[in-house]
Amino acid sequence: MGAYIIRRLIQSALLIFVIASLVSIFIQLLPGDPAYIILGETNATPERVAAVRRELGLDRPLLVQYADWLSGVVRGDLGQSLTSKRPIGPDLAKRLPRTFELIVASMTLAVLLGIPAGILAAKYRNRAPDVLVSLFSVIWISTPVFVSGTLLLLVFGVKLRLLPATGYVSFIDDPIEHLKRLVLPATSLALLDMAVILRMTRSSLLEVLGEDYVRTARAKGLAESSVLFRHALRNALIPVVTIVGLQAGTLLGGTVLIEFIFNWPGVSSYLISAINQRDYPVVQAVVLVIATIFVLLNLITDLIYAVIDPRIKYA
């Protein structure tokens, strides 16, 4: 197990390195130039653009810039924003927990609603609860987050005024307001995952319920709840855990849209504005961090299998 973890860690580090390198090189191949943003269109004479590029170090060969950036990253320095001139590390550190909070809240919501609903659907297969639950899951699976997000915002935020529509209040300033503003973005983000988890739980549980050992358990007279929860569910949850792990990555992608729609100041909105302004170091830093999180999530998912399913052994 130890050797496996080390091997996976090395693989992960390599993967992150490759992603970071590709992004660093390709972002600069895009048309558009931060010097124009800094100067503004009417001021952007070729001489001034050249001067600003020199000042920002953008006139150096790409590989030199890349090496410079990499050596900074290794020393824990993510560089500074080209437009705001502020160091990126602290800004990113402020925003990262907000995105995490969004993901954790959505994940929790998705699991807490998805698994029980899946169990319900499996238990009452092809009967009313199953049909109802499945119907909802199909709807949510086929609804993109920007649609559900916009709908929730319009209905609960703008029309009914039950919850604040947009914005962010820090937890320290006002915990209640903070949580109120978390509800809509987290719910929009959770819906798709909830539906996926629900369907996975249902089909996996149905499969397990048909296994011989379940019949044996029933035959020896165990209570139905004991059969369902102690024997069947535990095995049925393995694929569900995989899905939850993989979905965590998708959620990270979903935050790009949700943070935009709800003006949630996390890393994803930081990334979008950086791309819009061609703020290369910020894009590089955020992608590096997101890639790292994604890769680590996958690693953790793999390791959790081993805990749940004793048959899985790693050499």
Partner: peptide, 15 residues
């Protein structure tokens, strides 16, 4: 507010 629709919603919703 980067998104113009959100910007308008923010005023409509009282944020």
């Amino acid at each position: 507010y980067q998104d113009e629709n959100t910007r308008v919603s923010a005023v409509r919703g009282g944020d």
